[in-house]
């Protein structure tokens, strides 16, 4: 069969491969090359070696965006997962209406980032109004605004994954533990958590990469104000590309660094959690 099929390669693979090559692969390679050049229209690229990278790291905006993003990712990964896991625990108990609750908590996840950003801009500005302040008053407001937004969007999503994980725990393990006289907290620590570790891996991975790549929400909620102090990496790269003529190379260098960071975080994080899964 294998032999026969080979000649069908053009039909089965080629359309996808072409689209992938055009939309992703060529731009990706081109992007790496261009990060070492100065260019405005791709054709006029001139080799400048590592200068773009040096300029990227010496730009205060980039390092600021980097720290902001890292802080944001840490805080939102923790909060989203803690809340999502707690909700999942509650919703796997036998109570009325779990399905309805699940439906409600999940819904914000379907709404697009731009729309989410403006919804929360309205609400947060409304809350701050009586105090004579707005979201752009301090960078901290934008930070926590983004964290709240992220929680609202992602909790439901992570929750359904945790629910699936908890429901997959074999009933007899639980029963056995109960017969052995384990209390609720012990069951949680010794059985539930270790056995949902695969879900934890997935959830950490998803929240982490979503936090790092956040763009639409950032653009709509604060657009970086005040003074670009709430600009995250993705938005900073966008600003570098389109904000002024002549800094495209620096933008591309920032994008390469961004890609490396995201990849690195993903690899480290998957390895760490996988290891824990095995140990348990």
């Amino acid at each position: 069969m294998v032999r026969q099929n080979k000649k069908y390669f053009p039909i089965f693979v080629l359309p996808t491969l072409i689209a992938f090559t055009v939309a992703f692969f060529i731009p990706f390679l081109l992007g790496i090359v261009l990060s070492f050049t100065k260019f405005t229209t791709v054709i006029d690229a001139q080799w400048v070696g590592l200068r773009n990278y040096m300029e990227a790291f010496s730009s205060k905006e980039f390092t600021n965006a980097l720290w902001f993003t890292v802080k944001f990712a840490i805080v939102s990964v923790i909060t989203v997962n803690v809340f999502a896991f707690l909700l999942a625990l509650l919703l796997t108990r036998k109570i009325k209406g779990t399905n309805l609750f699940r439906t409600v908590f999940f819904m914000p996840n379907l709404i697009g980032g731009i729309v989410l950003g403006y919804i929360w801009q309205l609400i947060l500005n409304g809350i701050l109004f009586p105090f004579g302040m707005t979201l752009t008053f301090k960078p901290e407001f934008g930070f926590w605004g983004l964290v709240i937004l992220m929680n609202w969007q992602m909790i439901g999503y992570m929750m359904v994954i945790y629910i699936a994980g908890i429901q997959n725990i074999p009933k007899d393990v639980m029963e056995a533990a109960k017969i052995d006289g384990a209390d609720r907290f012990q069951i949680l620590r010794k059985i539930t958590i270790p056995l949902v570790m695969p879900s934890v891996t997935i959830c950490l991975f998803l929240t982490m990469s979503n936090s790092f790549k956040l763009f639409d929400q950032n653009l709509a909620l604060t657009a970086g104000a005040p003074s670009r102090k709430t600009t995250m990496l993705a938005l900073d790269i966008y600003n570098t590309f389109y904000g002024s003529v002549g800094s495209e190379g620096i933008g591309q260098a920032k994008a390469v660094v961004f890609t490396l960071i995201v990849a690195l975080v993903a690899v480290i994080q998957l390895n760490l959690t996988r290891k824990r899964e095995v140990e348990n």
Partner: peptide, 8 residues
């Protein structure tokens, strides 16, 4: 308008 609100 109060100062703090000018940002919006």
């Amino acid at each position: 308008t109060q100062k703090g609100l000018l940002g919006s």
